[in-house]
Design a binder for these strands. Structure first.
Length: 811
RNA sequence: GCCGAGAUGGCGGAAUCGGUAGACGCGCCGGACUCAAAAUCCGGUGGGGUAGCCCCCCGUGUGGGUUCGAGUCCCACUCUCGGUACCA
C-alpha cells in the first residue's frame, strides 16, 4: 500500500469501482424505504462554479449518508438547458445554441464525475432534449383543453431594436440590456397559466412544509402570493352605465372617501384620454416613468364624477400615478384621512380630508401631520359612529351587499404566469393559429414540435416551419412562434427523472414510487419563482392523475452562498475561485471536505485557501495513520473485558464520536461538527501509543467506524483505505456505525462544582455517586472551601453526571 | 416601511433539553528535525491582574429581567445580512 496520499490515483480507483459496479443505479424496490435526494440542476454554462460544488457536495453527502442508513437512494442529475446565454453565445461566436449547450454539458458532466458525486447517470436528462420537451408540450395542451392555459393580450417590455419581449430584469434604466434601445410598453398576445386558481392551495399547503422548509422561504412564498381579505365596492359614475369597482382592505373608512383615483392604464382613463389631450399627455408622461416608491404623487382630473354608494355624495374621479393597474381593479377609493398615499395626494391637489376613524384610546389624531392608518373607533360616519373598525367594516360591507354595491372578497398579489417568450432556444409552444378555427393544439401524434437546431437564432424562421395545416379544418395555418419560459421546464424535471425513459407517457408508476423528493437542496435565490412554479406544476400533475400528494419537495435545504473577501464569489466581482485547478492540486475529497467542514450548510461559506490546506493536512494524516496501522499486520480480536483503562477510554471516545456524528448529521445536516468530532478522534489515535494486540484491535475498530463516518464527505479516500485495511466489501455499502451503549459507560466522571453558579472546582466521582456523596466531596474540596468558608450553604443543586452547585450566603 | 434570519477570540465556527463558553480548523507564538528552506511533528494561544497558567477579576452586540445557574428564556434597543414594497 502506498503510504503517501496521492489523491488522483485514489480517486480514479474509487470512481472506476463505482462505475464498474453501477453503484448509483437506482432501481425501484417495492417495500424498501426510498429516499429521493435531489440537488437543483445547473444551467450548462460550461464550467462549474464554487456554488455548484457546494450545493452538490451537500446533496451527495446526504445521499450517501442515507444509503448507509439502509435507504434505497435515488440521486439523479440533469441540465436546465434552454435559455438566453446559448442564444447570446450563438450571436457572438457563430455557433449553434444546441451545439454550444451540449458541449458545455459534456464539460460539466466531466467535472461532476471528477468530484465523485454518486448520481444515477442513466437517468440524466437535458431539458432541450425533444424527448423531454415533447411531454411539456403534451401537458400544456392538456392544460389548454381544461382552461388552465389561455392566451390574452398583455402589456410587455418590448425592445424595438431586438424585436423581442424582455423580462423586467433585462430592462435597465428603461433600456434593453443588449440593444440599449428605449423599451416600449406594448400589448402583445401571450400565453398564461392560471396559477391564481391555485393561489389558495399554494398558500394553504405551505402548512404541510412547516418545520421541513426554512421559515424564510415559507414566509417569502406567503408574501409573494399576498393574500388579502377586503371588500369589492362599486361606485356609480354619472352618465355611465358601468359602475367603477374598487378593492379595499378598509371598508370601515368608506365614509371618509373624498375622491376616486384610477391607474393611468385603467380602461376608463384610456378612453377619456383619447378625447382629452391634456389627460393624454399626463398619461404618456406617467407611463414613461419607472415605478418607484417615494416619487411625487402626481395626478390629473378625468372630469368624471362618481357617487358614494351609501350617501350619493359626488366624488371627483382622478387618475393618479401611485395607483397600479396590476393590483386589485386598478382603481381605489381615496380616503386621505386614513391612507398615507391618499393623504399626500390630497395635500398636493387640495382635496378634502375627512376623518372617520379616531384612535381607540381617545387620543386626537393630527390630520395635518399625516394619515391615521391604525384601526380605531368610527366618527363622522352616521349610524356607524362609535363602532370599532372591524365591526364597522363588517356592517358597512353587509349594507353594501344588501344594496348590491359590494361584497367581501379575497385578493392576491400573485398574477397568472405569463409563459410566452419570443426566443428561439426554448420549447416551442405547440399551437397552430388557423384563420378559420382560431387556436388549435398540435395533435398528440405530431408531438414534439421540434426546434430547428440547425437554424442560427439570428435568422428568421423559414416558411416551411411556420406553415402548417390546421389539424381541425385542414386549411392553411401558422405555427405559434413563441417558446416557453425556461421556468416551465424546471417545474417538473424532478418528476421526469423518475420516468426518464418513458416513451409513451409523460410520467408512469415510477414517478409515484419515488415522489415526493425527500430532500431538495439548492440556493435561496430560487425561494420564490422556481419553488412556487414547481409546487404549482406538481398540483397540476396531481390533478391530471400523474402524481400523488400535494407537494413535490418534502424537505428543503437552502445552502448559503460561497463568499470570498466578504462578498459573493462571481465572475463580475473578479473573486471567483475555479474548482478545477483546486481538484487537480488537492483532489476532490479535500475540496468536498472543505465545503462541508467550513460552515453548516445553510450558512454562507467564507472561502479560505488555508482552510483548504487544513483539510488536505487532515486527509494526509488520516492516510498515513491508516497505512502505518496496516503495515503492523493482522490483528486478533481481544475480548473487551481485558482492555486496560486507556484502552477503555479510547473506546469510549470512539463511541461518543459515533453517537455525536450520527446525531448531528441525521437531525441537522451539520457535517461540520461531525467532521470535527472525527478530527478529534484522529488526534486521540495519534496520541494512543499501544502496539499490544488489544490496542491494535481497538485502533482497527476506530478506523472501521471513522472511514464509514467520513465516507459521505470523502468517499474516494474512504473507499481505498477500507479496501487496503482489508475490511469486507466496499465502504459505500456498509451500514452507518452504531454507538455501543456499554462502551459509553465509565466508572468515574468529571463533575463541575459551582459556588453560587460560578465554577470553582472539578471533581472526579464514581459514575453512580449519590447526591449526598457528591455534596460531601464538593464541600471537602480545597478550592471550594476557600469560597464557602465562613458562609452558610443554604441550598445545593445536583445535576447528575454534570455538576454540583452550592448556594451560599454570608454568615 | 414591512417580513425573515443573525450578532460568540485575530478569522471560519462549537456549545440547540437553562448546567464547566471558545470543541475542531485556520492564523499567530515558541520548540524539534534541517547547512538552510519547505514539508512534518510537539507545545502554547479570549482579555486583564499576577510571585509563570497556585489563583483572582472580566468576558457570547447594548440595557434591563427571570433563575441556584443565561450564549441559550422574557422585555426594550442597536447593528448586519437576505427578501419585498406606492399592494389600496
Amino acid at each position: 500500500m502506498q503510504s503517501e496520499y496521492v489523491p488522483a490515483a485514489v480517486e480514479q480507483e474509487a470512481q472506476a469501482y463505482w462505475d464498474a459496479h453501477r453503484c448509483f443505479a437506482a432501481p425501484e424496490k417495492p417495500g424498501a424505504r426510498k429516499f429521493y435526494c435531489l440537488s437543483m440542476f445547473p444551467y450548462p454554462s460550461g464550467r462549474l462554479h464554487m456554488g455548484h460544488v457546494r450545493n452538490y457536495t451537500i446533496g451527495d453527502a446526504i445521499a450517501r449518508y442515507r444509503r448507509m442508513q439502509g435507504d434505497q437512494v435515488l440521486q439523479p442529475m440533469g441540465w436546465d438547458a434552454f435559455g438566453l446565454p446559448a442564444e447570446n453565445a450563438a450571436l457572438e461566436r457563430r455557433v449553434l445554441p444546441g451545439a454550444w449547450t451540449r458541449s458545455n454539458i459534456r464539460a460539466m458532466r466531466e467535472q461532476l464525475r471528477k468530484l465523485g458525486f454518486g448520481y444515477d447517470w442513466e437517468r440524466e436528462l437535458a431539458t432541450c432534449d425533444p424527448d423531454y420537451y415533447r411531454w411539456e408540450q403534451w401537458f400544456f395542451i392538456r392544460l389548454y383543453e381544461k382552461g388552465a392555459a389561455y392566451r390574452k393580450k398583455a402589456l410587455v417590455n418590448w425592445d424595438p431594436a431586438d424585436r423581442t419581449v424582455l423580462a423586467n430584469e433585462q430592462v435597465i434604466d428603461g433600456r434593453g440590456w443588449r440593444s440599449g434601445a428605449l423599451v416600449e410598453q406594448r400589448e402583445v398576445a401571450q400565453w398564461f397559466l392560471r396559477i391564481t386558481d391555485y393561489a389558495e392551495q399554494l398558500l394553504g399547503d405551505l402548512e404541510q412544509l412547516e418545520g421541513k422548509w426554512p421559515p424564510q422561504v415559507l414566509q417569502m412564498q406567503r408574501n409573494w402570493i399576498g393574500r388579502s381579505r377586503g371588500a369589492a365596492i362599486r361606485f356609480a359614475v354619472d352618465g355611465r352605465d358601468e359602475p367603477l369597482e374598487v378593492f379595499t382592505t378598509r371598508p370601515d373608512t368608506l365614509m371618509g372617501t373624498t375622491y376616486m383615483a384610477l391607474a393611468p392604464g385603467h380602461p376608463l382613463v384610456q378612453e377619456i384620454a383619447s378625447k382629452n389631450n391634456e389627460l393624454n399627455d399626463f398619461i404618456k408622461q406617467s407611463l414613461k416613468q419607472a415605478e418607484s416608491e417615494g416619487r411625487d404623487k402626481l395626478g390629473h382630473p378625468t372630469g368624471l364624477v362618481a357617487r358614494h354608494p351609501l350617501t350619493g355624495e359626488p366624488l371627483p374621479v382622478w387618475t393618479a400615478n401611485f395607483v397600479l393597474m396590476e393590483y386589485g381593479s386598478g382603481a381605489v377609493m381615496s380616503v386621505p384621512a386614513h391612507d398615507q398615499r391618499d393623504w399626500e395626494f390630497a395635500k398636493a391637489y387640495d382635496l378634502p380630508i375627512r376623518q372617520v376613524v379616531a384612535p381607540g384610546d381617545g387620543a386626537e389624531a393630527d390630520m395635518e401631520a399625516g394619515a391615521f392608518v391604525e384601526y380605531g373607533t368610527l366618527v363622522n360616519s352616521g349610524e356607524y359612529d362609535g363602532m370599532g373598525s372591524e365591526e364597522a367594516g363588517a356592517a358597512i360591507v353587509e349594507e353594501l351587499a344588501k344594496r348590491g354595491q359590494g361584497e367581501e372578497v379575497v385578493r392576491y398579489r400573485l398574477h397568472d404566469w405569463g409563459v410566452s417568450r419570443q426566443r428561439r432556444w426554448g420549447c416551442p409552444v405547440p399551437m397552430i393559429h388557423c384563420p378559420a378555427c382560431g387556436i388549435v393544439p398540435v395533435p398528440d401524434a405530431d408531438l414534439p414540435v421540434r426546434l430547428d437546431e440547425e437554424l442560427p437564432p439570428a435568422e428568421a424562421l423559414p416558411e416551411a416551419w411556420l406553415n402548417a395545416a390546421c389539424p381541425r379544418c385542414g386549411g392553411a395555418a401558422r405555427r405559434d412562434t413563441d417558446t416557453f419560459d425556461t421556468f416551465v421546464e424546471s417545474s417538473w424535471y424532478q418528476a421526469r427523472f423518475c420516468s426518464h425513459d418513458s416513451e409513451d407517457a409523460m410520467l408512469d408508476e415510477r414517478a409515484r414510487h419515488w415522489l415526493p423528493v425527500d430532500q431538495y437542496i439548492g440556493g435561496i435565490e430560487h425561494a420564490i419563482l422556481h419553488l412556487l412554479y414547481a409546487r404549482y406544476f406538481h398540483k397540476l400533475m396531481r390533478d391530471e392523475g400523474l402524481v400523488e400528494g400535494d407537494e413535490p419537495f418534502a424537505r428543503l435545504l437552502t445552502q448559503g452562498m460561497v463568499l470570498k473577501d466578504g462578498s459573493k464569489m462571481s465572475k463580475s466581482m473578479g473573486n471567483a475561485v475555479d474548482p478545477e485547478p483546486l481538484i487537480e492540486r488537492y483532489g476532490a475529497d479535500t475540496v468536498r471536505l472543505f465545503m462541508l467542514f467550513a460552515s453548516p450548510p445553510e450558512h454562507t461559506l467564507e472561502w479560505s485557501d488555508s482552510g483548504v490546506e487544513g483539510c488536505a493536512r487532515f486527509l494526509k494524516r488520516l492516510w498515513r495513520f491508516a497505512c502505518d496501522h496496516a503495515q503492523g499486520g493482522d490483528v486478533a480480536s481481544v475480548p473487551e473485558a481485558e482492555l486496560t483503562p486507556p484502552q477503555q477510554e479510547l473506546r469510549r471516545r470512539l463511541h461518543e464520536t459515533i453517537r455525536k456524528a450520527g446525531n448531528v448529521i441525521g437531525r441537522r445536516h451539520t457535517f461540520n461538527t461531525a467532521i470535527a468530532a472525527n478530527m478529534e478522534l484522529l488526534n486521540e489515535l495519534l496520541r494512543f501509543d499501544d502496539a499490544s494486540a488489544a490496542g491494535r484491535t481497538l485502533v482497527r475498530e476506530c478506523l472501521s467506524a471513522m472511514l464509514r463516518m467520513l465516507a459521505p464527505a470523502v468517499p474516494h479516500a474512504a473507499h481505498v483505505l477500507w479496501r487496503e485495511l482489508g475490511f469486507d466489501g466496499a465502504v459505500l455499502g456498509q451500514p452507518w456505525p452504531e454507538a455501543d451503549e456499554a462502551a459509553l459507560q465509565q466508572s468515574v466522571e468529571r463533575i463541575a462544582v459551582q459556588v453560587n453558579g460560578k465554577v470553582r472546582a472539578e471533581l472526579e466521582l464514581p459514575t453512580d455517586a449519590s447526591e449526598d456523596e457528591a455534596g460531601q466531596a464538593a464541600r471537602n474540596d480545597a478550592k471550594v472551601l476557600r469560597h464557602i468558608a465562613g458562609k452558610t450553604v443554604v441550598r445545593m443543586i445536583w445535576v447528575p453526571h454534570k455538576l454540583v452547585n452550592l448556594v451560599v450566603r454570608d454568615g
